Simulated scan of single mutants.
Amino acid sequence: MSKVSRFVLAATFVLAAGGCSTAVQGTPTTAPSAPPTSVANPLASLKPCDLLEQVLQGLDYPPVAPDIVNKKLACSTHKPDGSDVMLLLNPDIPFTETPTNSGSSKVGTVNGRRALQMSDLGKVKGGCAIRLEVKPQANALLTAVSNTTAAEDCQLADQLATRLEPMLPRG
């Protein structure tokens, strides 16, 4: 599988990771007005490329760029050896401990922040994503995909999530 195909597949997983919902019974009503932007979107002041650039500092990755899938909320970089890293900010999607892949997953924390690690991302060989909670109703998803194993991708994703976590707002 080509590097671009692997990354597009991983990016598709990433977008799907935050977009699942369930039907709710009841009668629709008008929602109350949204709280101020800082509460409604705790990620509003963050730029994914600035964050990813800081997270990757000193790790010999090429410059980051807005991702082809979502230029406003996602940023990625690609090494010639096939290692891809992407950060997606999900401002309107609450953190969930429910995995969105058929591979393995584990719930835990990164520096005390709730996190979900998901590995074996579909048809990609290996791959690992870590979803970090950003209260009140958001999450950040960091994905690492390479030509190695899911275990190695998860080691990198863990290292990067540990660097990213202090940069995210606390609710």
Rank of each mutant, 00 (worst) to 15 (best):
M1K: 08
S2R: 10
K3C: 07
R6V: 06
V8P: 03
A10T: 01
A10N: 02
T12Q: 14
V14K: 09
L15N: 14
A16C: 11
G18Q: 04
G19H: 11
G19Y: 08
C20G: 11
C20M: 12
S21M: 03
S21Q: 06
T22V: 14
A23H: 12
A23I: 11
V24R: 13
V24M: 12
Q25Y: 11
P28I: 05
P28H: 05
T29F: 08
T29G: 08
T30M: 11
T30F: 08
S38R: 12
A40E: 05
N41M: 02
P42R: 01
L43M: 11
L43G: 09
A44E: 13
A44D: 13
L46P: 09
P48K: 04
P48C: 03
C49L: 02
L52Q: 00
L56A: 02
D60V: 10
Y61C: 03
P62Q: 01
V64C: 00
P66Q: 07
P66Y: 06
V69T: 14
K72P: 01
G82T: 02
S83Y: 05
D84H: 03
M86V: 05
M86T: 07
L87P: 03
L87T: 02
D92I: 00
D92V: 02
D92F: 04
I93Y: 05
P94M: 04
P94E: 03
F95S: 01
P99D: 00
N101P: 08
S102H: 09
S104M: 09
G108A: 05
T109D: 11
T109L: 10
T109Q: 15
V110W: 08
N111K: 15
G112Y: 01
R113Q: 09
L116S: 00
Q117L: 13
Q117V: 11
S119A: 14
D120K: 12
K125L: 13
C128F: 11
I130M: 11
I130V: 11
R131I: 05
E133Y: 06
P136A: 02
P136N: 03
Q137G: 08
N139V: 02
A140M: 04
S146M: 02
N147G: 15
T148D: 14
E152Q: 15
A157G: 07
L160Q: 12
A161Q: 08
A161T: 04
A161W: 08
T162C: 05
R163K: 15
G171P: 08
